[in-house]
Simulated scan of single mutants.
Amino acid sequence: MTAQLVISDPCLNIHKFTTKQYQLMYETGVFAVSDRHELISGEIREMSPIGIKHAACVARTTRYFQIKLGDRAFVWTQNPIIVNNHSQPQPDLAILKWRDDFYANALPTPDDILLIIEVADSTIAYDRDVKMPLYAANGIPEMWLFDVNQQIIEGYCQPSASGYKRTRRYEQGDTLSINAFPEVIFNWEDLF
């Protein structure tokens, strides 16, 4: 008969934070201004540094969306959104329903979001395996994932509790449009 080692350590308990607790931490100065964190499923996660390919792709994409959409939607760049009571991610871009207050009174929620764009050079697995299912489960209608190394865009739509039901891959020569604005066409070359 072998002995079993049972560890009972109160330090192993995990505390899940709410978005209200997380926002209060920021307001009271728990994090340095330069810190890059996001709240995912109650856990505070450190975000990767932004590389040059990533930064250039976000800047280019932001500019094209602002030009093409004008006042029909609001381009929310690398700012927090509230997905649910335990998740406040910071997607690279969120295309939001237009609001005259520029979301000054409350952060955007899934009801405000038309499209999420995540740009990845070193975080492709995290964005695909953690953030994409989170967005789908919370009803965000569409997500695009830019892989800046492979220069591929993955498009996801038809959210469900188990993930997005429809996936499409875009490469050089392809065109894309947001489900909310099907008449607005983006060329792959404009985004890469």
Results as ranks from 00 to 15, higher is better:
L107D: 14
N79I: 11
V58R: 03
Y103M: 13
N149T: 14
R166V: 15
E189K: 00
K16V: 14
Y26Q: 11
E189H: 00
K53D: 08
V33Y: 03
Y156W: 09
K97E: 10
P89F: 12
T123R: 01
L96T: 12
I178T: 05
F65M: 15
S8D: 12
F74P: 00
Y170K: 01
T2E: 09
A94Y: 06
V6G: 00
D101F: 15
Y103R: 08
Q88P: 00
I52F: 07
T167Q: 08
K165G: 06
P108D: 10
P133E: 07
I152F: 02
Y126Q: 03
S87H: 02
D92S: 10
V130Y: 00
D101A: 15
L12K: 11
H54L: 10
I113R: 00
N85E: 15
D9Y: 04
A3W: 03
M47T: 15
E189F: 00
L93E: 07
A73K: 00
R60D: 09
A55H: 08
I95T: 11
R72H: 07
D71M: 11
Y22H: 04
N187C: 05
S48W: 14
A136D: 03
L39Q: 01
A73H: 01
K16I: 12
D71F: 14
Q88D: 06
P133M: 06
F186A: 03
I50K: 06
R169D: 04
A104V: 12
C57A: 15
K97C: 13
